[in-house]
Nucleic acid binder design. Structure first.
Length: 660
DNA sequence: CCTTAAGAGCGTCATCTCAC
DNA sequence: GTGAGATGACGCTCTTAAGG
């Protein structure tokens, strides 16, 4: 009863894998060899339970054993009403012996020369047969054993041989399908573990002592059939055994299960005894059983692991969702706080401060001195002092009279225009040296200062800028003064030529080049562009004239171009303008030529930008336009095509400097 | 009701790993 | 090196749901 309770508990707890059901090697060996030793002993009680419950009659030929199991103290199946016992598939490795014993249809087993028929009228399935399955419908197990009456000893011997040859697992698997690896639990419950030499006998005892239903063993008077020794309590089978599934209960599926049930490597049943039983087979069986359990355990562990992983995954996913929600909420809160903070930061108070600062900056830049380096010069005249009390930028333009002068933004000319003697009509008007040097110098300085302050020339030396401005202004003035003289001389010449050639002088101030060798004539020198009659605004627009830039415009293509040999990529490209110049002491009558030297002005520039512009030919002043080549070559004095040699030979090409 | 595919469970074998 | 345990691979059976 305790064993059955244990059995129930084990069934109830599927996680427990009946590790204690395993026989140790000593148990196996002891059982096996005890069986071998006790083969001849009559005390071997293969069916002790049977003996106790149903005493066999040795003389009975047809033994009908009705084993009525005692009523279980518990409900027949209150615990597992739907418990289904699953059959074990046959092991391929064991198929040989197993099929030999049990795979015959309906347990028709041939044992050696004899046929042992065991008819089991049992309940539902062979699994329940052993009482492992606590089915209430456990009916009667009827075992029909046919025996040979004349030789009962053979029966015993052969039965014992069979029983001992069959490994414990065989019977276990035969009768206990549900727990094939646990053959001795039942034995232990029946108190047969120690005494029973062959576990398979306990198997039968198990059946017979099953409290469920009745086990009926019919031993028929089969002369060729098995015999049961009745003298002792040991039931020995010899001959054919028929295991009949319960009539009407054995399903089609249950039958093959029964066939596959045995996993015992059947010994050569014809052999009389167990010495042939190979220990290797037993060990193999042991190992198989253990491996089966281990596999089950491993699968259970794996399943649990996977379930644990799935559970963790669910938890992590839920946590992730919650964290996402929290993250979104925090983001929204952060955005709200940022918006609120920005409102506070750029609120009315700060905005007021910013507006005040902007206003102050506006005032500072619009009403403060433009140049922070130089105090505005004292006004030369009351008017000028009034108008230039605040130094401002001035537009530079040509006057109608050809005077290049500066005007303030209101168009009022700068400098002492009133004090300048007006030239005669038709004469190009230039400011005198003094006036120019005062007004233009200031203008130059202011422009240069503004230019270099606004540009990136942060390391520009102011002293150097003053020097450059002086040089440029002096250069321009010299050309201007020289222009006067040259114009006078030209007029004289034109008059002479007019008288000679009856040709009117050109309208423009630029006379044709004098013939002959280069002459130190102002005409061939750098010329200031002016148009006495038309300001040529189209032309100035075409060149995109800026107020703060000197221009050298040349329509003659005889200038010498020397490309740079190397270029520093970290600085702007530099350009040097070299053009005829006059020293202050020389005159335009040829004295500028100091012996064998040409006096030239070299202007070092940094190229700010280059672009190709297209000037409409009609907008070009006629005097600047290309003049048709004279019919008589260079003798006419026209510029030659620009070649270095030719330009060197004609260094005094007309350059036109548009300056303020 | 029968057939079929998918999934689950199990047994067995082979292999690997670890302890002795 | 050997034995034992763990585990993957393979095959088998059973169960169940879906479809005809």
């Amino acid at each position: 009863m305790a064993a059955e309770l244990l059995l129930l508990s084990e069934i109830a707890d599927p996680t427990r894998f009946f590790a204690d059901n395993l026989l140790s090697a000593e148990d196996w060996d002891r059982t096996l060899y005890n069986c071998l030793d006790e083969v001849t002993e009559d005390q071997v009680q293969l069916f002790r339970c049977l003996e106790q419950d149903v005493p066999f009659d040795s003389g009975s030929v047809d033994m009908n054993v009705n084993i009525t199991s005692p009523e279980p103290p518990w409900d027949p199946l209150p615990i597992f009403p739907d418990l289904q016992v699953k059959s074990e598939p046959s092991s391929p490795s064991l198929s040989f012996e197993s099929s030999l014993l049990f795979k015959e249809p309906l347990s028709q087993v041939s044992v050696g020369e004899e046929v042992l028929g065991v008819k089991i009228e049992s309940p539902s399935s062979p699994h329940c047969l052993l009482g492992k399955v606590l089915k209430p419908s456990f009916g009667a197990v009827q075992i029909s054993v046919g025996f040979t009456p004349d030789d009962p000893s053979d029966i015993q011997t052969k039965t014992e041989s069979i029983s001992s040859s069959s490994s414990p697992s065989s019977e276990a698997s035969l009768l206990s399908e549900e727990f094939p690896s646990k053959p001795f639990v039942e034995e232990e419950a029946l108190g047969l573990k120690k005494e029973s030499p062959a576990p398979q006998l306990c198997l039968l005892g198990d059946v017979l002592t099953s409290p469920f239903g009745s086990v009926q063993i019919n031993v028929g008077p089969n002369p060729d059939g098995p015999s049961v020794s009745s003298g002792s309590s040991v039931v020995l089978f010899q001959g054919p055994v028929q295991v009949q599934p319960p009539v009407g209960e054995g399903s089609a599926s249950s039958t093959p299960r029964l066939e596959r049930k045995s996993i015992v490597p059947a010994p050569v049943l014809g052999t009389p005894c167990l010495p042939e039983v190979d220990a290797k087979v037993l060990k193999r069986q042991q190992r198989m059983i253990k491996n089966r359990e281990s596999a089950c355990q491993s699968r259970r562990k794996k399943k649990e692991y996977l379930q644990g992983l799935e559970a963790r995954l669910q938890v992590v996913l839920s946590d992730n969702q919650q964290l996402r929600r929290e993250n979104a909420a925090l983001r929204r809160r952060l955005e709200g706080l940022l918006a609120e903070n920005s409102e506070l930061k750029f609120g009315s108070g700060n905005r007021k401060v910013i507006c005040v600062m902007v206003f102050l900056l506006f005032i500072a830049f619009n009403f403060g001195p433009v140049s922070i380096n130089e105090v505005p010069p004292a006004p030369a005249s009351p008017q000028m002092g009034r108008e230039e009390s605040w130094p401002q930028r001035h537009l530079l333009e040509f006057s109608e009279q050809g005077v290049v002068t500066g005007q303030d933004t209101q168009g009022i000319p700068l400098g002492h225009k009133e004090s300048q003697p007006r030239p005669a009509a038709g004469q190009p008007y230039f400011k005198n040296l003094t006036t120019f040097s005062k007004g233009a110098k200031e203008l130059f300085l202011r422009d240069l200062d503004q230019f270099f302050l606004s540009s990136d020339c942060r390391h520009f030396n102011r002293t150097e800028s003053l020097r450059l401005a002086d040089e440029l202004s002096g250069w321009v003035q010299r050309h201007q003064s020289g222009r006067k003289r040259s114009s006078q001389l030209r007029k004289i010449r034109e008059k002479q030529k007019f008288h000679q050639w009856k040709k009117p002088p050109p309208a423009w101030s630029v006379p044709p080049r004098p013939s002959g060798p280069p002459e130190r004539d102002s005409v061939s020198q750098l010329q200031l562009y002016h148009h006495p009659r038309h300001p040529q605004p189209e032309f100035l627009d075409a060149i995109d004239r800026r107020e703060d830039t000197f221009y050298v415009v040349s329509f003659r293509r005889d200038h010498l171009l020397l490309p740079a040999i190397s270029h520093n990529k970290t600085s702007r490209p530099k350009m040097s303008l070299v053009m005829p110049a006059m020293t202050p002491n020389e005159t335009l009558s040829g004295r500028g030529n100091t012996g064998d030297y040409e006096v030239m002005m070299q202007i070092e520039c940094e190229v700010m930008d280059t672009r190709v512009i297209h000037i409409k030919s009609s907008t070009v002043p006629p005097s600047l336009r290309k003049q048709p080549p004279p019919p008589s070559g260079n003798a006419s004095g026209n510029p030659l095509p620009s070649t270095p040699s030719s330009s060197r030979q004609t260094p005094h090409q007309p350059f036109y400097l548009g300056h303020p």
